[in-house]
Simulated assay, not measured.
Amino acid sequence: MHVAVVFDSAGTLLRTYRIAKDVRTGELLVDVETTMLTYADPDRVLCVLHGHSRDFMKASPDLLVSDFIRDHDIAFGISCTRKVIEKEAVKTILHDDRQAKIGDMQECMRIIWSEIKEQEIVALNNGLIVHTGLMIIEFCVTAGGTPFPGAQETISALHRRGVFTYIASGDREAKLERMADYLGIPRDRVFGVATPAIKEKIVRDLKQQYDIVMMVGDSINDLKAMRAADIAILSNQQPSVKPHELISEADYCIRDLRMVPDIVYDVLEKS
């Protein structure tokens, strides 16, 4: 029997530190779950920027984010949204906003870097939440993560059993690929900047190839994929408030990633 396990990244494979800055008020939201922040308003869209953190840090803090994105041709991906929206519409907001400054991004980056800089393996992602109703960049966001204890061993245990592992995440693909190299997941099984709809499609496509497909996630943006999977595993290794609909969808709830191989073995024995 052929089995595939699809993992979310932030909060599932990685212990993740997140921060968001409200551009209008200057308020810093520490350890905020950016997907829940995005889902709180149907007009919000979470975008992942493909620019290198070093380049953002070198720029003048007074420079408008929109000018930097436009002048440096910074690509972006839509990571999370509650509604279907054209990428060009989001690009227009990113290029025309006159409030968010590079200094806002730099402030977020410094805080997160201070949390993860001592770790051996780290991933740092920068993004923006735009508001399509107000036509502004509403929040600057930064997330940094490091693998949970046992993550590498978990993937190895699954591979020894002949289980195929995948990553489907809203994070940047380049960052995910380096993390996948460390964990031992082939790069051709890594899907970055995946919206909830794309995650769902990935799971459905894999169901055409495998007898059983499991989805391991931790947040509301994993809900569609969990519903599409044969087995849904909800991770609470990084504790956060989970919506009821996410909890009710889970076949298993775990507090340690290292429980996943045992769940796979249990499912196989019952099949």
Results as ranks from 00 to 15, higher is better:
residue 246 L to D: 11
residue 118 E to D: 14
residue 97 D to I: 07
residue 247 I to R: 14
residue 225 A to V: 10
residue 90 V to K: 08
residue 27 E to T: 10
residue 176 L to W: 10
residue 6 V to G: 08
residue 18 R to F: 00
residue 207 K to F: 08
residue 65 V to W: 05
residue 219 S to I: 04
residue 126 N to D: 09
residue 259 M to V: 01
residue 169 S to R: 12
residue 123 A to P: 00
residue 250 A to F: 08
residue 256 D to M: 02
residue 238 Q to R: 07
residue 6 V to S: 09
residue 1 M to G: 10
residue 12 T to L: 05
residue 256 D to C: 12
residue 92 T to C: 01
residue 193 V to Q: 11
residue 87 K to L: 01
residue 237 Q to H: 07
residue 33 E to G: 04
residue 16 T to V: 09
residue 210 Y to I: 08
residue 218 D to Q: 04
residue 200 E to P: 02
residue 100 A to V: 06
residue 269 E to D: 09
residue 15 R to W: 13
residue 142 T to V: 14
residue 191 F to G: 01
residue 82 R to P: 00
residue 163 V to I: 15
residue 148 F to W: 14
residue 252 Y to E: 04
residue 190 V to P: 09
residue 162 G to D: 04
residue 16 T to I: 06
residue 253 C to P: 02
residue 22 D to S: 13
residue 45 V to T: 02
residue 27 E to G: 00
residue 142 T to F: 01
residue 41 D to C: 03
residue 132 T to P: 00
residue 148 F to L: 08
residue 98 R to C: 03
residue 132 T to I: 03
residue 244 H to P: 01
residue 98 R to L: 11
residue 16 T to C: 15
residue 259 M to I: 00
residue 7 F to S: 09
residue 74 I to H: 03
residue 64 L to G: 06
residue 219 S to K: 03
residue 72 H to R: 15
residue 232 A to E: 01
residue 250 A to N: 10
residue 39 Y to T: 02
residue 69 I to N: 09
residue 225 A to H: 07
residue 39 Y to R: 07
residue 9 S to D: 10
residue 246 L to P: 08
residue 91 K to L: 10
residue 82 R to L: 13
residue 56 F to K: 00
residue 67 D to V: 10
residue 211 D to F: 06
residue 12 T to A: 03
residue 238 Q to E: 12
residue 72 H to M: 08
residue 171 D to F: 05
residue 86 E to Q: 10
residue 87 K to P: 02
residue 233 I to W: 04
residue 178 R to M: 12
residue 126 N to L: 13
residue 248 S to W: 05
residue 103 G to R: 07
residue 109 M to Y: 13
residue 163 V to A: 10
residue 217 G to I: 03
residue 267 V to P: 05
residue 238 Q to N: 02
residue 253 C to K: 12
residue 227 R to C: 06
residue 260 V to N: 11
residue 125 N to H: 11
residue 47 C to S: 11
residue 228 A to S: 14
residue 89 A to D: 14
residue 166 Y to E: 04
residue 93 I to D: 08
residue 152 Q to L: 13
residue 11 G to I: 09
residue 223 L to S: 05
residue 128 L to I: 14
